[in-house]
Design a protein around this nucleic acid. Structure first.
Lengths: 203, 203
DNA sequence: GTCTATATCTGGATAGAC
DNA sequence: GTCTATCCAGATATAGAC
């Protein structure tokens, strides 16, 4: 038998703490979530929490950074997609997906955005995610620019940034107006992006 | 000479405190802004603060509600505008204006949005503002629906809500990406709204 | 590794002199 | 009306037994 089964157990528990924390941070915000609430939610005690994380802030950062990788693979795949416009819209759709799947994500994202402009560490984490997201958008947009679906007058960088903020709009609405169906919102988002890019005079 | 010059002085000082507080709440958020910081910014002492406001939270609410009236008059005016689509776009532009004029407003709005879903009182304040804004949008959209500029397939309520969230998108971007010129963003917003509403097959 | 007990600090709010 | 001094609750983080 192996000498150390601990590592897996450790990782599992750590993940459990992360998941519990995400719920609370999303629901109550960073500042209003206390360490004892975090412990209660995870079913552990204060000492244990500090055994797994050096402090509340590091825990928060860990929550934010946990699933950051999965976007990259899709981006690679889409880069070689046949139809550029199709690829772009699929990427947008992908970025909007978490908002619909996990109701807590929008709140978490907004919370992070606000914290970002007060705390340098949070800012860095967010900027990294945002930049590589916008970078992906720009590349796809660049390619799509050849087709007749995109207004040649548009500045690519500006357009990418605006589309990025359209996605944020969906997150905002998901967070603040839960009465609207995420699927419908996604439909509107896609319609908006397509219509925004299209030349004014018609294809 | 009048017996009581106090009222004006009182109002002036109260306003001064409100203005100072707005800056801090926008920059640091509600929770991280301490009462002593509020006092320092306003150049007063703790006792004085509590003389003018019953507490930190009431001060925050007062900041949020202070300039809420001015939208109504414009709405009345626009309701009788000749060109419905033009009126709608002007209203949208008007709602987006504060984001460009006062750099702190976007942060304040976002802060309020997040607090709203944790604190019932904040929620009520925001809901009132939001509802009468969306209501205005709906009315204007209803009128514009007659013209050929609006896709008859669109659900008016859904569309109004989505446009509202497009405006929020501009606020979000203003708050998180100050490197982008607000005027340009406003241009994109108008383009987005117009394009979103237009029938897909072309006008 | 996990807990309990506790140290330390900071925040909002109050009391009461001037 | 304005200030200073202070109270008290609650937060993060640590110490150290088990």
């Amino acid at each position: 038998m192996p000498r150390k089964v601990d590592p897996e157990a450790h990782a599992a528990k750590r993940q459990h703490i992360l998941d519990s924390a995400a719920v609370l941070f999303a629901a109550r915000g960073y500042e209003r979530t206390t360490t004892s609430q975090l412990c209660a939610q995870a079913g552990i005690s204060l000492g244990t929490l500090y055994h797994y994380f050096p402090g509340k802030k590091q825990l928060f950062l860990a929550v934010l950074t946990q699933d950051e990788q999965q976007t990259r693979s899709l981006l690679e795949e889409l880069a070689q997609d046949a139809d550029p416009m199709e690829a772009l819209l699929r990427f947008v759709s992908h970025l909007a997906e978490p908002a619909a799947e996990h109701p807590i994500v929008p709140h978490l994202v907004l919370e992070a955005m606000l914290q970002a402009h007060r705390d340098p560490e949070v800012r860095k984490v967010l900027e990294d995610a945002e930049s590589h997201e916008t970078h992906g958008l720009r590349r796809l947009l660049q390619r799509a620019a050849g087709s007749g679906d995109v207004d040649p007058e548009l500045d690519v960088e500006e357009a990418a940034s605006w589309i990025s903020s359209l996605i944020s709009a969906l997150y905002l609405q998901a967070a603040t107006q839960p009465e609207f169906d995420p699927a419908t919102q996604r439909k509107h988002l896609i319609r908006s992006v397509r219509a925004f890019l299209r030349p004014p005079w018609t294809p």
